[in-house]
Amino acid sequence: MSDLKLRVKEMIIERLKLEGMTPDQIEDQAPLFGDGLGLDSIDALELVLGIEQVFGVKIEDEAAGLKAFKSVQALTDFIAEHTKG
């Protein structure tokens, strides 16, 4: 697992208080909302704030959120893309 992806998973677990869950239990391709981790809109706000705090990346609107929250992989790519340079 890439270092960034691991940090993303740890941030998700910490921010959403998914107690008892470990990073390797979160599948890279599983959707964060709906069927996958089953997160809701309140969790989305927590993640947006967490991503901003931990990685310094802002998710500006719902369109960006839709893209970034597709899966852990998508979120990791989104963060990597926005922290370049």
Binding site: S41, I42, A44, L45, L49, E52, I59, E62, G65
Partner: peptide, 10 residues
């Protein structure tokens, strides 16, 4: 305000 996203504010 701690932040807002998709109509939800903390």
């Amino acid at each position: 305000s701690e932040g807002a996203f998709a109509g939800l504010m903390k």
